[in-house]
């Protein structure tokens, strides 16, 4: 069918979709995505917290790792048992089972500030700083 009209067929079936692709890329530029919080985080606890065991002795640094997929976040604590907490990102708030934090800062310098429930302590205020994210794979 197209044997003798390869060029027009090629333009129609390949060229036009490529133009469409450029349109898609342009249209997608303004789409907002949840703030990036994936990676390893180091924690600073409120020194005024009254705990049987200091929180710093329960969690080693980096204290947790977050595996993020859009608004879903899986927080893995480095507490010796690799306890995992399923969480969600709503706007700039991260909520997991025993952790609530506000996400702040630019992409490369994200921080979390909130409270965390630790055995023998009650809610403890914390501030977390993300270690260099792994985007780019280098």
């Amino acid at each position: 069918m197209v044997k003798h009209n390869l060029v027009p067929a090629y333009l129609l079936l390949v060229g036009v979709p490529v133009l469409g692709l450029l349109g898609i890329l342009e249209a997608g530029r303004g789409i907002p995505a949840p703030p990036s919080i994936g990676g390893e985080w180091t924690l600073e606890f409120d020194l005024a917290a009254h705990c049987a065991t200091p929180p710093g002795a329960i969690l080693r640094q980096p204290a947790f790792n977050i595996s993020q997929s859009g608004t879903e976040a899986l927080v893995t604590l480095d507490d010796g048992h690799a306890t995992t907490l399923e969480g969600a990102v709503n706007g700039n708030v991260l909520t997991a089972k025993s952790l609530t934090a506000t996400i702040a800062g630019k992409k490369g310098e994200r921080t979390l500030q909130g409270t965390m429930q630790i055995d023998g302590c009650g809610p403890v205020a914390f501030r977390a700083i993300r270690q260099a994210p792994k985007k780019g794979g280098e």
């Binding site: 979709p17 490529v18 469409g20 692709l21 898609i24 890329l25 249209a27 997608g28 530029r29 789409i31 907002p32 995505a33 949840p34 703030p35 990036s36 919080i37 994936g38 993020q68 997929s69 859009g70 608004t71 992409k107 994210p133 985007k135």
Partner: peptide, 23 residues
């Protein structure tokens, strides 16, 4: 390729984050 990129318009805000650009 085009259909995959078109689907990305829907999936990007749901399964990605702002550490990755839409493009």
């Amino acid at each position: 390729f085009c259909l995959g990129s078109l689907t990305a318009l829907y999936l990007y805000p749901r399964l990605s984050d702002d550490g990755v650009t839409f493009n």
